[in-house]
């Protein structure tokens, strides 16, 4: 095998093309915090709910969460614009190199952060190193807790399991997970387009959160296609990347202000 010397290096990391491939914009000015994206994500990606106690202790499995803070004091108080926080699919993802088993490598083809559930051993280093804190860990076997089951003919029947999306793996305890930009939808759209001998066109599909969002705050698509809506929005003057100063090259652009 020929060793490409460009892959061996002692200096800083190679800058990936700053734009990436898939990207998202979130208009914080119109986000109402209605949680439809969170619910849609949960339904699409087989997220488990964790119950009252664990949820309050910081163990929710939300892949997207809506952050709000306060400004000022009563009566001049304002809730800050809602900030839906999800995996930013960084070009320089801090979570990636720290995994000892390559469970969260970078996809060169899709330029996304992959999470390989069945490779994960649960060191949780990636979650520590994520500046956005968007990774969630399966602290327990939430899905197969007998509490959710009914005993039918001596067997535990989990009625809720009927709803599982067959395109998405169901995770068990000890595994890290995070937003995938609905990679199952990306692949499906690409397969369809390939079968029809064309490219995926802008708006042909979108992520579950963007699809549900009643305020149309979320836009998803190819940021490297300059005519696409998401690309144009991400170059909007209101566009801001979260924690940009860390050089993580996030793929999500927040439209701030008005």
């Amino acid at each position: 095998m020929k060793i490409d010397l460009n892959l061996v290096g002692a200096k800083g990391a190679i800058a990936e093309a700053a734009e990436g491939k898939w990207g998202m914009t979130i208009d914080q000015d119109v986000c109402t915090g209605c949680q439809a994206c969170v619910a849609a994500c949960a339904m699409e990606n087989n997220l488990s709910f964790v119950g009252e106690e664990d949820a309050g202790y910081g163990r929710t499995q939300h892949w997207i969460r809506i952050e709000r803070f306060w400004e000022g004091e009563y009566p001049e108080i304002k809730a800050t614009p809602n900030q839906p926080m999800l995996c930013q699919q960084c070009g320089h993802a801090p979570c990636e190199p720290v995994c000892p088993v390559f469970a969260t490598p970078h996809s060169d083809a899709e330029q996304l952060n992959l999470q390989v559930y069945n490779r994960c051993v649960g060191t949780r280093y990636c979650a520590n190193n994520c500046p956005y804190q968007v990774r969630s860990f399966n602290w327990r076997d939430y899905h197969i807790d007998p509490f959710h089951a009914n005993m039918v003919d001596g067997k535990l029947v989990f009625a809720l399991h009927n709803q599982f999306n067959p395109d998405v793996t169901v995770r068990r305890r000890g595994v890290m997970e995070k937003c995938t930009f609905c990679i199952q939808r990306i692949h499906k759209a690409q397969d369809t387009a390939k079968a029809e001998g064309r490219d995926v066109f802008d708006g042909e599909f979108t992520t579950a959160c963007a699809q549900a969002c009643p305020a149309d705050a979320i836009t998803f698509g190819r940021v490297d296609h300059h005519e696409s809506l998401v690309s144009q929005l991400s170059h909007h003057e209101r566009g801001v990347k979260h924690l940009e100063e860390l050089n993580t090259l996030p793929r999500v652009t927040y439209l701030k202000g008005a």
């Binding site: 209605c34 339904m43 989990f158 709803q163 699809q211 549900a212 969002c213 009643p214």
Partner: peptide, 17 residues
């Protein structure tokens, strides 16, 4: 084409144990 959270989770009513 849009839904709210309650619409999204109506499946958990359908498959409610």
């Amino acid at each position: 084409g849009k839904t709210c959270a309650r619409g999204q989770t109506s499946l958990q009513g359908l498959y409610n144990p």
